[in-house]
Design a binder for these strands. Structure first.
Lengths: 121, 121, 121, 121
DNA sequence: GTGGTCTAGACCACC
DNA sequence: GTGGTCTAGACCACA
């Protein structure tokens, strides 16, 4: 998957989000080595420093760890990855229900809307 | 409904969103006068100028119009309001499907997740 | 001719302009009685006070004069009216040339443009 | 070209107009970086925020885009710039014809007047 | 008293 | 050092 950014939000935040998605979705599976910063930065078209900052954040959360000389690796803690995946999905779902409720839709209508859109796409 | 903001995104952006929600949900019905800038600003706990900026945006979109001396009014174009309501909801739904897909969920799983969360709440 | 206003500029200013146009164009000929404030205000859809203010301005410029009991009249000074007509037109022409020059057009191009538009309309 | 303002109309509006003129006339060519807000504001003698507001408007119209850290740039979409140039000129021409017509001039007289003024200047 | 405009000055995120 | 955001506070035009 490529990289897309919307101006107006910090780049490094968006990088964190997209890297997380790549990890929990299995595009970067547990234990796998991540491409070097410079390479990934070039691919995403961002400043290496900015990507570095995103990595630091992911390391803080335990999803990534840097091996002194051999590069960066995705955590091998599968349950952490799976937990995070579920957590993120639930958050998205609740957020959606919340936002549609603000527009005056009932939960039933919100479910029905998703069902329809999921079939049209 | 009250006013809630999350740091990190411009206040005026969030004001635009919440005002839109109030309009399309019918809390501010078509044709109705909305409270004076200063009053609403005090209620939301923001600077009147910040709110003014949000209003300008809504005026550009045709949802609001300012009467020189008598106040601001919601558009009377009901179909515009209804169109926007559907449009916003569709956008939220698609966004949700998109984001869950990035986490590695199928559309069916995404629908099912919403269904479950909507019953638990 | 009807009355049209664009928000954003003072109403009374626009009234002055349009009244002047009616006078110099001969729609309100020299010496003629002008409709009463209340009537004209209703016709234009403005507050009588606002129209009053526009009249005051025209009186200051000598284009109108109020007869104590019988109403307001257009000046009988034909040469004043004609002078003003030419003056306003020249001003418009110079303004046009000035603005197009700012867009990078030569005077010749500006003339040519007017010629074309005047034939298409 | 310098900066001139007439009181009575919002400063930011006049800034938008003059900036547009600079762009379509080629004084700020497509793709070129424009001076920093603070610098330009000092040059024009206005508050940086006021200029910022004008910039926002031009960004909405797609004539400018802000690069997070490196400055603001004129769009590279030459056809947009050229289209706008013609559009603005046509609008000015029609406006002129309209206003002189209100003064009681025929289109022919209006053309002739421009011709004469353009030679005298 | 309403909205509209403008200024001055500060702080923040980003690279 | 760049643009972006926000606040506080003032003044004006309008009806």
């Amino acid at each position: 998957m490529g990289w897309t950014f919307d101006g107006g939000r910090p780049l490094y935040t968006q990088l964190v989000e997209q890297l997380k998605a790549k990890i929990v979705s299995g595009e970067y599976p547990p234990g796998q080595r991540i491409p070097p910063v410079r390479e990934l930065a070039a691919e995403a078209g961002v400043n290496p420093n900015t990507l570095q900052r995103a990595f630091s954040e992911l390391e803080r959360e335990g999803l990534l760890h840097a091996e002194r000389t051999s590069g960066r690796f995705v955590t091998e803690d599968v349950s952490l990855v799976e937990y995070l995946r579920g957590e993120m999905a639930r958050e998205l779902a609740d957020q959606y229900l919340d936002q549609t409720r603000q527009l005056g839709y009932s939960n039933e209508q919100a479910v029905e809307l998703i069902r329809r859109r999921s079939e049209e796409t």
